[in-house]
Design a binder for these strands. Structure first.
Lengths: 159, 159
DNA sequence: GACAATTTAATTGTATACAATACTCTCGAA
DNA sequence: TTCGAGAGTATTGTATACAATTAAATTGTC
């Protein structure tokens, strides 16, 4: 155990991503200030603008969030007038998330504002696509490691 | 406003980063399960292993976190025996975060475990460095936009 | 030395995240 | 048809994040 090399924060890819994620969050919070939306609320609306209504479960699949996060988030969006949560009649377990008229009406305004703010970042489509391609690879690796329970096995071995 | 193009979630770099960040978080949570550490707790220890003791403020500078996040996090680390929070005698405003003997003793064990788990990801140093370089650029852009208050101006213009 | 401005942590309030649990509803098999 | 397994959502509990405020200590200036 004496030949273990030190782990430096600044050399960690995870910290770069963690930090970038927080900065993006802050960036969108500012960009969306006129609408009073947080970043997670915004991406929920993005998915709904693509394809509403959706059940909580379907929305969660797209956003990679569970009902523990989405239920309160959607209640806040409902309170602010963006969505309506309607218990499905055909299957009373499900709650359908509908966009309000206000949300539909403001869609292009939000799109436009996001477009303006993103252009301030000055990133080319090539740069963005290149990054996203690499991120897909990283995420696939992370999924694979989790799904295969490689870590769980490691844990068992260690304990 | 009618010629605004739709914003698709899957085309958003921010969502790729947001999603990757959450997956990394989960990955480290599993990797660190034998030690009962969360990812933010782990990176706090990383910085302290590099250079303890540090004030809350200094630690926050490295981690990009403020006292609102760090105070409760450090109290939890203290309760679990990793650190000690000691009010500075020379400047009573400051709280110095010291590593406990247990934390010092377990350092190499944690380093080794992280090394093992990271190797499961199968990423080369080149791939990691290439990603981090690109992320640095993105983060600089995000910082610049925030610092220059470009968005604030946009907001003012719009409102 | 007095005191206003600043610095440093802690606290408060709001909003995610997510594991674990509870609760209701649906559906299929006996 | 009835009951048990499973699905879908909500709730609970813990842990971040961060803006805004508070409180205490220090510093600079007169």
């Amino acid at each position: 155990m004496s030949n273990v090399s030190p782990v430096l924060l600044d050399e960690q890819l995870c910290f770069s991503i963690y930090s970038a994620s927080k900065k993006f969050n802050h960036f969108y919070q500012s960009a969306l200030a006129p609408f009073g939306l947080t970043y997670p609320q915004y991406i929920a609306l993005l998915v709904l603008w693509e394809d509403a209504p959706l059940t909580v479960h379907q929305l969660g699949d797209r956003l990679e969030l569970d009902s523990g996060t989405l239920t309160p988030l959607l209640k806040r969006l409902e309170k602010q007038g963006w969505v309506e949560r309607v218990r499905s009649r055909t299957d009373e377990r499900q709650v359908l998330i509908h966009l309000t008229d206000m949300a539909t009406a403001k869609r292009d305004e939000v799109y436009a504002r996001i477009g303006q703010c993103q252009s301030l970042l000055g990133m080319s489509d090539d740069e963005i696509n290149s990054m996203m391609t690499k991120l897909v690879t990283v995420k696939q690796q992370l999924d694979e490691v989790s799904n295969n329970r490689k870590i769980a096995k490691e844990v068992d071995k260690t304990l």
